[in-house]
C-alpha cells in the first residue's frame, strides 16, 4: 500500500493504492468519484474512459501507482464552471444519446477526446472512433447524432430531437 496523488478535475487528490489497484478502482473507491463506471474486465467496453494528461484512457487498464502526479479529468469534471452541461453533455441530452446511463460517462469522455482531435468528424469517423465504447441501450444512432450535433453539424435528418 502507498499513497498516490493526482490532480483530478483540477484539484490535488491523494488516496491509498495497492500495487494492483486500477485507476478506475482508485477513483471510485479511493476518491468516491463513482461517475466512472466499470462494465467489463477485458478493457473492451470503455465505460471507464477518463482523460489522463489530456488523452482518453480506459481507467480499468491503468495502475494507479503508475500515475502518481498525473492530471486526470473524469465525468464529474466535464460540466461548465457554472454547473451547466458542457456542449457535448447537452448534445447527449438534446438528442437522447443515453438511456440507462451506465456507458454514458465513458462515452462522453471518448466523444470529447474525439472532438478535440477532430472538431468536425464525419459520421463514419464518429462510429469508428467510438468502436471501443460499448452501449447496449441506444443502438448508437443517437450517440452518433449527439456527437455530430456537438460538433456543430446539422443532424435534422437523423430523427427526433428533444423539444
Amino acid at each position: 500500500m502507498g499513497k498516490v496523488t493526482m490532480t483530478v478535475n483540477g484539484r490535488q487528490m491523494t488516496a491509498e493504492a495497492e500495487g494492483r489497484t486500477l485507476l478506475s478502482t482508485w477513483l471510485r473507491e479511493g476518491l468516491g468519484l463513482t461517475g466512472t463506471h466499470v462494465g467489463c474486465d477485458t478493457s473492451q467496453c470503455g465505460a471507464c474512459v477518463v482523460h489522463v494528461d489530456g488523452q482518453p484512457v480506459k481507467s480499468c487498464t491503468a495502475l494507479a501507482m503508475d500515475l502518481d502526479g498525473a492530471e486526470v479529468r473524469t465525468i464529474e469534471g466535464m460540466a461548465n464552471a457554472d454547473g451547466s452541461l458542457s456542449a457535448i453533455q447537452q448534445a447527449f441530452q438534446d438528442h437522447h444519446g443515453l438511456q440507462c446511463g451506465f456507458c454514458t460517462p465513458g462515452m462522453v469522455m471518448a466523444a470529447a477526446a474525439l472532438l478535440k482531435e477532430n472538431p468536425k468528424p464525419t459520421e463514419a469517423e464518429v462510429r469508428h472512433y467510438l468502436e471501443g465504447n460499448i452501449c447496449r441501450c441506444t443502438g448508437y444512432h443517437n450517440i452518433v447524432k449527439a456527437v455530430l450535433a456537438a460538433s456543430g453539424q446539422d443532424v435534422s435528418g437523423l430523427g427526433i430531437a428533444a423539444e
Partner: peptide
C-alpha cells in the same frame, strides 16, 4: 419529445 430529466444526473457522474 420532452428532454429526459434523468439525463442530468447520468451526464454529470
Amino acid at each position: 419529445s420532452t428532454k429526459r430529466r434523468e439525463d442530468l444526473r447520468f451526464l454529470t457522474g
